[in-house]
């Protein structure tokens, strides 16, 4: 089973990397870009789990290891079963 987990900084936390990208896009003329938030993508390949178990373990992994809950939030999707 393939899972994609997205980790990014919480809205309340300043994201200078995202801002730098936004500024760069503006200098290139893409003024339509209102905001950029930068994050990380993890692609996990899981085995020996049914969907229900997976849905339990993924947030656990994300909260415990992949994201730092003080500054980061995460979302995830199962890409293929």
């Amino acid at each position: 089973m393939k899972v994609r987990i997205l980790v990014s900084l919480k809205e309340s936390v300043l994201d200078p990397q995202g801002q730098t990208v936004r500024n760069a896009l503006h200098t290139l003329g893409y003024h339509q870009v209102k905001d950029v938030r930068q994050g990380k993508v993890f692609e996990l390949e899981l085995e020996g789990l049914n969907r229900q178990d997976a849905e339990k373990i993924i947030p656990e992994i994300s909260d415990r290891v992949l994201a730092n809950p003080i500054i980061e939030k995460f979302s995830w999707e199962i890409m293929e079963a």
Partner: peptide, 15 residues
Amino acid sequence: EAGLLPGAMLRNKNL
């Protein structure tokens, strides 16, 4: 990260 101290670290402001 271990929770022995509170808070977190971000990238330096000048990146």
